[in-house]
Each structure stands twice: as C-alpha cells, then as structure tokens.
Design a protein around this nucleic acid. Structure first.
Lengths: 194, 194
DNA sequence: AGATATAGGTATACAGACCTACCTACTCCG
DNA sequence: CGGAGTAGGTAGGTCTGTATACCTATATCT
C-alpha cells in the first residue's frame, strides 16, 4: 500500500518540515540538513522517501496546491450563488494566507517558489497548473452569470485572477494579508454590475 | 570624485553582469565567480567596489528601480491627459519587461528578488519603496480626475496597482509579456467610466 | 617622475551545500 | 522465527559559495 500511517510517517514529517522551511527561508535558502533536523528524522530517511531535494521540492509544491484546493472546497460548500462562488475563491486564498509559519506571512508559497526556480525547472509547471485551475474556478461562475457573452466572462475571469495575484504579491511584500481582503472587496464591487 | 568614467568602470561592468545573471538565474542561484567572469573583471575589483554580495544585490535592486523610473519618465513625456498618464505607467512596465536577458522574460526583477529574500533582508525595503512609488504615480492622475472623491481615487489606484502587479506575476510565470498588454486594456476599460 | 589607488590573476581559507556509506535497531509479514 | 524493509545516527566525500591574501601591472594625480 501507499503508507498505512505507522506512527507519523517520516514522509509526512519531512514534508511538513520542508513546507515550513521552504516557505520561511526560500527553497535555495533551505538546506537538507535543516529539513531533517526539523523533521527529527535521519538523513537516510529523506533519501528513502525522496530521490533528491528536487523531488522534495516538487512534492512540496504539489502539497501546497492540494492544500489550497481543500480550503477552496470547504469555502465552496457554503456558497450558493455564482457570485458567492467567485468570492469564495478569494476567501480560500485568504484562508491559505493564514498558513503562516514562524517567520510570518510571506505571500503565495507557489509564486515565491516559481520566482526562485529557473525557467526550465519542472516545478514551475506545477505553479502554472495551479494558476490555471484558479482561473478556471473563477471562469465557471462567470460563464453562468454571462451565458450570452463568453468573451466578457473570460476577460473578467482574467481580470479577477490578476487582481488576486497582485493582491497576493503585495501582501507577501508587506507581510500582511489585509490586501486580500481589499481585493475581495474590489471583486465584489466588480460583480455588482452583473 | 565619484568615478569620472575611466574606460568603463569596473563598478558598472559588475552591475551590468550582475543584473543579467541575477535576473536570469535568481540571486541565490548566481555565484560571485559567475558575476566576475561575465564582467571580465578580477574578483578583487568586486570587493573593491562592493563590500559584499549583499551590497551588490542592494545596488542591483536600486539600479533596476532607477531604470524603471527612467522608462516611466520617457513615457510620461508623451502623455497629456491624466488618463494617458495612468496608461503610461502600464506602458513603462511593458517597456521594462523588454529588458529580457538571454534566458527570456521572467517577470519583475524586483518582485522576484523580494520573493527570494528573507523577511528581514534590507533589499525588500527597496522593493517596497518601488511599489509605493508606482502606486503614487497612479494616484496622482486619479486625484485629478476625482478631485471630490479622494477615497475612491485611492481605491482605484490600489486596484490598478494590484492589476499591474498581478499581470506582471503571471507574465513572469508564463514567460511572456502579453499579460501586461491585457492589463493595460483592462485599465483603459476601468477609466472610461470616469 | 614618483606616489597612490585601482586592476588582473591565482591561490586559498572556511563554511555550507547535496548526497552516500556504514552500522545498528525496530517493525512488519509470511 | 527469520528475512526484508525502514529508521536512527554518524561520518565522510565532493562540490560550490563567499571572502581574503599576495603579488604584479597599470592608471591617475600632485
């Protein structure tokens, strides 16, 4: 089987430790030794569960994406109208921002990672997929609201996703997640005319 | 005096080389040796002109900020109305995006650097100042357009700056600067109602 | 011209990176 | 039970990074 949870599998402990350190100090700024020390496991265990640091990074990115999806699903549960489903995406982003580790909020972990990965790194693909998925989640309700104008729905989805991304980038710079609330309010404003 | 241009001062050669390498490979991904080799300069010269790599990074960030300001000034020359002055800021960002080195476009160098710098790094302060300055450049014409509603002008400036930032972040991910054109069009749309 | 500062170039200290090796111990499973 | 797989722990190997030292050569300034 995959891993029927022995105590708390070394794999999970490593991923959790890597998540905190990668987010706080950056990927390049985090050494293998720091990860195993924080995880409280032997270095051997790391290389039993991951083929390399790049593999650990890749799984870290996937995990953060999955983490956000779960938060979004939870928010979508409570959303009824298309308009609420759009704002739920903004709420999910804000929820995700609460995942700050000890060094404080530093913006979107996926975006930060992409900024530090080289252009050909496979990890960037994960980040691109994430952003596409978010945009699709914005587009679906908009298409419902504007069934006769798909072009406008597409432009609006893109605009909202830019807004979200920009708010996240600025939030990371300032170290606060207030910008995500602002962005949500802006999105709500844009939607009242529909 | 400062440095009355001997031939092409080592300081400039180093900054130019660092700019290309930092932008293409990231700051952490760029070693001192690579910088001096590309600059065609001795390592001694680096440590004569800069106290450390951190100093080089800091001056790199300042230089990119100044570079953008120059591009913006040029664009503002041709702008007459407040509306044009706002769109000129978007144009300047697009101009700046054309500063791609051999590895292609990778988004806003300042934002990428901030993503990879730790929370307490002084370099982040430079990036914050840059973003504040951009937002101020957006706010001034909006205050002219909305002299009786400064609150709305402020919100709009912030929204436009989020739009710009988000487009830049996405553009860096995709490796293309088309998103900046989209953002300019969105901004133009938002301004027609004023 | 002579003094001072800057530059080239190589060698090197010193730390930290990623990864592997070896040995021991526990646990799972037929 | 006995063997295989996973885990802990330490040690080391190789590479790369930042920064300095030393010596020579060139350029600038009085």
């Amino acid at each position: 089987m995959e891993s029927p949870q022995k105590t708390t599998s070394a794999h999970d402990k490593l991923l959790r430790a890597a998540a905190a350190l990668f987010y706080d100090n950056g990927i390049g700024g985090t050494g293998i030794d720091a990860v195993v020390q924080r995880a409280g496991v032997a270095k051997k265990s790391l290389y039993n569960n991951f083929t390399s640091k790049a593999d650990l990074v890749s799984q870290y990115l996937e995990a953060r994406h999955a983490e956000w999806l779960a938060l979004n699903d939870a928010r979508q549960e409570g959303a009824q109208t298309p308009r609420e489903r759009i704002l739920a995406v903004f709420d999910a982003y804000r929820d995700h921002a609460e995942f700050a580790y000890e060094r404080g909020f530093r913006g979107c972990g996926l975006l930060n990672a992409a900024a530090e990965l080289t252009a050909d790194d496979p990890g960037r693909q994960v980040v691109r997929r994430h952003k596409e998925e978010v945009e699709a989640l914005l587009l679906a309700p908009l298409s419902e609201l504007l069934p006769d104008d798909p072009a406008r729905a597409g432009r609006l989805a893109r605009q909202l996703s830019f807004l979200l991304e920009g708010a996240m980038a600025r939030a990371g710079l300032e170290g606060s997640s207030d910008q995500l609330l602002e962005a949500r309010a802006m999105a709500a404003d844009l939607l009242v005319t529909l």
